[in-house]
Design a protein around this nucleic acid. Structure first.
Length: 252
DNA sequence: CTGGGGATGGGGCCC
DNA sequence: CGGGCCCCATCCCCA
């Protein structure tokens, strides 16, 4: 299941920011009780519209080869993409189990104890009211971007996001700015022509691992993205979209 | 028009 | 907590 991509913004008209307007590396950290203060000059992105484009529900059809090593001397391989679990599977644990813990026997003055702070209450309703305080405190723990409407549960995630506004990594060759160092590194390869990721099936090499991965789909008979109507497969989701929009899948 | 390459964006995870 | 990396997504352009 795609993660945050479902809320990715589609603001095509402002895809390329004016980097000269973003020269300030200032980081604005605004826990949401500071919201409402005057905003800087960076325009507000449009409100995200939910998209549901992943129509190929039975993915993946063909796993990538496991020997997709870059040329020797370059960063580690593409292999083992399946071994990594990004599902973030947390055990379905009940808040009630965590927060509510019955303690003591019958007849004790305070027999309902909070599992989080060990505070005891004589009545269940008293404990429930206390528990609500924990829930409120947790829900309040969000960090909001000053440049846009996004909220994050951790300060680190917010700082990472804010880099997409401040673009602190600048290419010394052309001056283009990027949010993260590795993005800049990838960009620098476009200047140097360095292509560390080679295809094991042909002579092609790529500067970007993702592009190699997309290229590998072209070697596969059964490609990753399948039309649920005619079962034709495509190497890219965009191609599947085009196929669907061309009239094959008229159901939607 | 279709398929594919190039470039880039962005959140999550791991160390 | 931050950096690096992973993966996915998307746009542009070209053959």
């Amino acid at each position: 299941m795609p993660r945050s991509f479902l809320v990715k913004k589609h603001t095509n008209s402002i895809k390329k920011p004016n980097y000269s307007e973003l020269e300030s590396p200032t980081v604005f950290i605004t826990p949401h009780f500071y919201r409402g203060l005057p905003l800087p000059v960076i325009p507000q992105p449009e409100i995200l519209s939910p998209i549901t484009v992943w129509t190929t529900s039975s993915l993946p059809l063909s796993p990538l080869p496991s020997d997709l090593s870059p040329i020797s001397g370059y960063p580690s391989s593409l292999s083992d993409t399946s071994s990594k679990d990004h599902s973030g599977s947390e055990s379905p644990r009940s808040d009630e189990d965590d927060l509510l813990k019955l303690t003591g026997g019958v007849g004790e003055a305070e027999k309902f104890q909070c599992a989080l702070c060990s505070k005891s209450y004589s009545t269940y309703s008293g404990l429930l009211k206390h528990k609500q305080l924990h829930c409120d405190a947790q829900s309040r723990k969000s960090f909001c971007c000053k440049y846009c409407e996004k909220e994050y549960v951790s300060l680190g995630a917010l700082k990472m996001h804010i880099r997409t506004h401040t673009l602190p990594c600048v290419c010394k060759i052309c001056g283009k700015a990027f949010s993260r160092p590795w993005l800049l590194q990838g960009h620098i390869r476009t200047h140097t022509g360095e292509k560390p990721f080679s295809c094991p099936h042909c002579n092609r090499a790529f500067a970007d691992r993702s592009n190699l991965r997309a290229h590998l789909q072209t070697h596969s008979d059964v490609k990753k993205y399948q039309c649920k109507n005619c079962s034709k497969t495509f190497s890219r989701m965009s191609l599947l979209h085009k196929h669907e929009e061309s009239g094959c899948c008229t159901a939607h």
